[in-house]
Design a protein around this nucleic acid. Structure first.
Length: 948
DNA sequence: GCGTATAATCTTTTT
DNA sequence: GATTATACGC
């Protein structure tokens, strides 16, 4: 990070506060620093107050960081800035609607209102579930649209389309489209024709057919077209190009019915959402835009004296327009870096920054068509640059520019010169440049990465700069592995844990693909119809072999405790309750389980799902791989694994860019939607429903859309920008890795990949996660209602410490725990020696200090009794519960069995397949005594008689 | 050696 | 759906 004093470029921007600015701020150039100082400079002016200055960021975290840093450098304190408009577009839109948006929907002919209780749906899969419910109603009410639904493979495609239209500013009114929305749906023939002509140019000086003609080779293959569709030879022509008039033929199509259909779905869904009292992120911006557009008084009241937008390359069309509506003067400053625009799937439009001037004029004109909405002059736009990079060495910066000019496929040709001209070169702030920029490939890429990490850690050749400016050998925490896909990261994490290398995954994970979710799904399936698939997983989890499980399922002779558990679950009224009980039983109380629980509970809260529908919901969530953020609780010194998208804005001394493999990065393909939209071609349907000559319904493919799709060039620019983002995270060293089939990025970048055979002999795979003895015992979700000690007669302990002091017991217990964990501890008294001898004598696995609890239905309530098991001795056949008794009481098993019975049932319920025993271990004389566990009924009696 | 036709193989990111 | 590898013809 830059020092306390801004450099001249930064100072220039900090001081230029009046007027329109487009700032090209490359990676690591101290953007946040400069923006916060500029903000401080603006509010330090006489007569300007934080409420006059809008500062937009794209994440809430970024907003908070900005706020904190401004506090440090302006005369304002946190309290004064707490309500200042430093926020995301979404939260700003939310605030505006909250305060003034009650009737905003009426501008679109919707009678519903937005209230303080209108919720914001953040979870995609929940919105999808609601949307399916909506579509169910819609199809019932609109049989006239049946043919569109017949041609649609998945209803939620319509939701994606609606979100895209909302992000581009295309909204429906009661009848027709808001403002000039419809023109977007009709596309732009001229723009299309340009693309078409480009794609249709013959190659190799006219000797080779055009790309377009080559692509149309498969026209009609595996397709059914209506009879009036042209033949393949008519479309392709007989020369090197396809006939020019094909452009007209495919573009001109009657889209009236399709537009009407999309309009009605869109408008009804807006009504549905408001009726159900929710909005998604896109609708938030939609209504804020409409409100600011229509309510001139409000717009003038709300507008800001100064507007700054950070990370402008991440903005969508609607956000650009919102910026214009919110600016009261031309004191508008947008800051960003087109090279880091990687969020197009979130409707970010890189041309907002790359073609800033054009868009500014066009949007302002559009908005001013019927009223003066953009009241300030939109020229001149002053360009500024930040070119001093405080993050990386010069060799990494030089390397990074190649990322933007490397072909993504073997055949892609790029205009390297034109691209290079658009890149503002960055200069490293440091003269030191000892960077390793390396590449490797290996059949076993995961192992090769681990071996590489092992080479790097503690190696002075890969020295990194410490906090004190001194160079030191790297540690695990200095390294980040970045990947294109989550899957690769997760697999790598598994491999790392196998070899005991500290590694943590940060970012969203596919929560529903995790263990807790699968267990929940299994039990829901069992509840629903004793489904074999459910039992199979539950039995496997309990340690049954596949053969044993199959036998049990065939005979429907399910283990007693499991049947009891199933009946317990039946009693529960909510899905959240079922989920909680399942997670409790399996001791899944981590953050992942929490997220699953939250999601299930909110599904229950927002929808009217039956159990069957919930099962389908989870199945779909698994299939979708929908993700949620989970707090992974990363270790202090561990290698970070992230997707490239998740790593934006961060930096690491050493970056390993992994999974540089064909078909992975960049990924190829991507299926077509049944209803698609793009700027030049507008709204299109890919399939058309029609009756054939015999009156039998058939779905036909739309030949026009088939040709149109092939006219749109495949564009890998964003993949290159992703590559660029990954490379520019590195401060000092960079390693690129690939597998057996490396991609063309790895082959095209100026670095030679060495093929390696990973040597992992240095690793000691302790592998305790994969022990055959592994056992998980349920841990309490909160404080237990009772400790087992409650039931033990106090007289047993009375005066039996033998003068050794009250802490003696804890000392022995602690010794035992540490000894089991393999720490070096000294047995300095006879009790400890006895404990040591005991532990040494046990084969299999020993697990110390395990929380255990037993939920026990008693009368109308569930009483939970919980405690800590001192030691579990586990083999593949048996589990032995051992409780150390350090007091001098002997022959007290009758009392101790009350305590150990609790533990016994917890473990026995969990592992019906193993022989479970419980015993006390008198540490004073090393005597072991097995107890006879009380039955659950006896325990119930015990609790009742105790007054519980 | 070059161009065209055909078959085989892969298919994501998240505020 | 798109790329790449391969077969085949000129």
């Amino acid at each position: 990070m830059s020092g306390v004093e801004p450099n001249p470029e930064q100072r220039d921007l900090i001081e230029a506060i009046d007027g329109l600015y487009l700032v090209d701020a490359g990676a690591g150039t101290g953007k946040t620093f400069t923006v916060t100082r500029r903000y401080a400079n603006i509010v330090d002016q006489h007569g300007i107050d934080p409420s006059d200055v809008l500062l937009v960021t794209f994440t809430n975290n970024a907003a908070e960081e900005m706020r904190e840093r401004i506090v440090r450098h302006s005369e304002y304190g946190m309290r004064e800035l707490a309500n200042a408009p430093i926020q995301t577009f979404h939260s700003l839109a939310h605030d505006i609607l909250d305060e003034h948006g009650h009737n905003a929907p009426t501008y679109l002919g919707i009678d519903e209102t937005i209230t303080g209780s209108t919720r914001i749906i953040e979870d995609d899969i929940i919105e999808q579930a609601l949307f399916r419910e909506f579509i169910g109603q819609f199809t019932d009410n609109h049989p006239e649209y049946d043919e569109f639904f017949t041609a649609l493979s998945e209803a939620t495609e319509l939701l994606d389309l609606i979100k895209e239209l909302a992000a581009k500013g295309v909204f429906p009114e009661a009848t027709g489209w808001y403002r000039d929305g419809e023109s977007h749906l009709d596309g732009d023939f001229e723009a299309f024709e340009t693309l078409f002509a480009e794609r249709n140019e013959p190659r190799n000086d006219g000797s080779k057919q055009s790309k377009l003609r080559s692509k149309l080779y498969r026209y009609g293959t595996d397709k059914t077209y209506l009879p009036e569709a042209p033949e393949k030879w008519e479309i392709r022509g007989d020369g090197k190009q396809i006939p020019a008039d094909v452009a007209h033929q495919v573009f001109e199509d009657d889209r009236t019915a399709l537009k009407q259909f999309v309009h009605d779905v869109y408008h009804s869904y807006l009504e549905f959402a408001l009726r159900r009292n929710y909005l998604n992120f896109g609708f938030l911006q939609l209504f804020a835009f409409v409100l600011l557009c229509e309510d001139h008084d409000l717009r003038e009241r709300l507008d800001y004296e100064y507007v700054m937008v950070d990370e402008f390359q991440d903005s969508s069309a609607i956000q650009f327009k919102l910026t214009l509506l919110l600016a009261g003067t031309n004191n508008v400053c947008v800051v960003g870096d087109w090279k880091q625009s990687i969020y197009s799937f979130q409707y970010a439009d890189v041309d907002n920054i790359r073609e800033f001037d054009d868009r500014l004029q066009r949007f302002a004109q559009e908005l001013n068509r019927d009223a003066d909405r953009v009241t300030f002059p939109t020229t001149p736009v002053d360009g500024k640059q930040l070119t001093r990079n405080y993050r990386s060495t010069q060799s990494i910066l030089d390397f990074s520019t190649h990322a933007l000019t490397t072909p993504a496929t073997k055949s892609e040709s790029l205009d390297v010169e034109t691209i290079s001209e658009q890149i503002t070169p960055l200069n490293a702030n440091t003269d030191r440049d000892h960077s390793h920029i390396e590449a490797l490939t290996s059949e076993d890429e995961h192992e090769a990465i681990l071996a590489k990490i092992d080479t790097i850690v503690d190696n002075d050749a890969y020295a990194v700069e410490g906090d004190d400016g001194q160079y030191r050998a790297p540690e695990y925490g200095d390294i980040a592995v970045l990947t294109r896909t989550r899957d690769f990261g997760r697999d790598l994490l598994d491999t790392a844990s196998k070899y005991g290398l500290p590694m943590a995954y940060e970012g969203g994970i596919e929560v529903f693909r995790t263990d807790p979710a699968k267990l929940l799904l299994a039990w829901l399936r069992i509840l629903e119809r004793d489904a074999d698939r459910g039992w199979a997983l539950v039995l496997e989890e309990a340690g049954y072999t596949i053969d044993e499980a199959n036998a049990i399922i065939d005979r429907e002779a399910y283990p007693e405790p499991m049947v009891t558990f199933r009946e317990d679950l039946r009693e529960l009224e909510t899905f959240g309750g079922v989920a909680r009980r399942v997670f409790d039983r399996y001791g899944r109380s981590g953050p992942t389980a929490d997220v699953v629980l939250d999601t299930v509970q909110s599904v229950h809260g927002m929808t009217t799902f039956t159990r069957g529908e919930l099962i389908r919901f989870i199945e779909e969530a698994i299939a979708d791989g929908s993700t949620h953020d989970v707090d992974a609780g990363a270790g202090t010194n561990a290698v970070t694994v992230q997707t490239i998208h998740a790593t934006k804005g961060l930096e690491y001394p050493i970056v390993i860019l992994a999974n540089m493999n064909a078909n992975k990065f960049p990924s190829s393909g991507g299926g077509g939607n049944d209803i698609a939209y793009s700027d030049p071609i507008g709204l299109r349907q890919r399939k058309v429903y029609s009756d054939d000559a015999h009156g039998v319904p058939h779905v036909y493919d739309n030949w026009r859309t088939d040709v149109l799709n092939r006219c749109l060039p495949q564009n890998y620019d964003e993949e290159r920008r992703l590559l660029y983002v990954a490379v520019t995270r590195a401060e000092s060293h960079l390693v690129l890795t690939g597998g057996a089939d490396p991609n063309s990025f790895l082959e095209g970048l100026p670095v030679t990949a060495e093929d390696v055979e990973p040597d992992l002999s240095a690793f000691d795979p302790e592998d305790d996660d994969h022990s055959p003895y592994r056992i998980d015992v349920p841990v309490p979700d909160g404080p237990a209602h009772y400790s087992p000690h409650t039931f033990i007669d106090d007289d047993v302990f009375e005066g039996n410490t033998g003068g050794r002091g009250m802490d003696y017991g804890s000392e022995v217990h602690e010794f035992a725990e540490r000894y089991v964990l393999g720490e070096t501890v000294e047995a300095d008294n006879t009790d400890k020696e006895h404990v040591k001898a005991l532990i040494d004598s046990l084969d299999g696995e020993t697990i110390p200090e395990i929380d255990a609890f037993l939920p026990l239905p008693i009368d109308d309530e569930t009483v939970t009794i919980g405690g800590i098991i001192d030691l579990l001795h586990v083999t593949t056949e048996s589990v032995e519960i051992i409780d150390y008794k350090t007091d001098l009481t002997t022959d007290a098993e009758d009392e101790y069995e009350k305590q150990l019975s609790i533990y016994y049932h917890v473990v026995a319920d969990q592992y019906p397949d193993r022989t479970v025993t419980a015993e006390v271990f008198y540490t004073d004389d090393g005597d072991r005594r097995e107890i006879n566990p009380l039955s659950k009924t006896e325990i119930r009696e015990m609790v009742r008689s105790h007054g519980g």
